[in-house]
Design a protein around this nucleic acid. Structure first.
Length: 114
DNA sequence: ACCGTGACTGACG
DNA sequence: ACGTCAGCCACGG
């Protein structure tokens, strides 16, 4: 009874595992779900994730650490504010010390076994 | 089933 | 290092 596509479910499952105060990239999630080339679709799935409370989409940025999707949060600074609440410094839509805050689902073994 | 869109990424100049 | 182009996958009309 998958109401949503399996692809979406896998994406949400990974995003939910993003630790507090950490961030990851769409590409990293895409690879974790087995679709490395579908990074764009990951963002698409995030757009529909607003219906799910356990999907911290604000912790998902592009591979450069830029808040490319902040515009989809309704407010201009909504995404940035959420990140700063977790102790993540964001300047000019750029996550500071992004490399250190980056959380790789593949490295953490958060991959879902089908 | 075809075409357009998109919260991306990698390669090239 | 920065800007631009093309490729890629999934969803909606």
């Amino acid at each position: 009874m998958a109401e949503h596509s399996d692809f979406f479910e896998r994406v949400y499952a990974v995003v939910r595992q993003i630790p507090y105060g950490r961030v990851t990239s769409y590409g990293a999630i895409a690879r974790a779900v087995g679709a490395a080339k579908a990074s764009r679709t990951v963002g698409y799935a995030m757009n529909a994730s607003h219906t799910l409370p356990d999907v911290p989409a604000h912790r998902v940025v592009n591979r450069l650490g830029l808040l490319t999707g902040k515009h989809h949060f309704g407010g201009m600074n909504a995404m940035q504010q959420l990140l700063e609440e977790e102790g993540i410094a964001v300047i000019d839509d750029q996550v500071q010390d992004f490399k250190a805050l980056f959380w790789d689902p593949m490295l953490e073994g958060a991959i879902l076994h089908e």
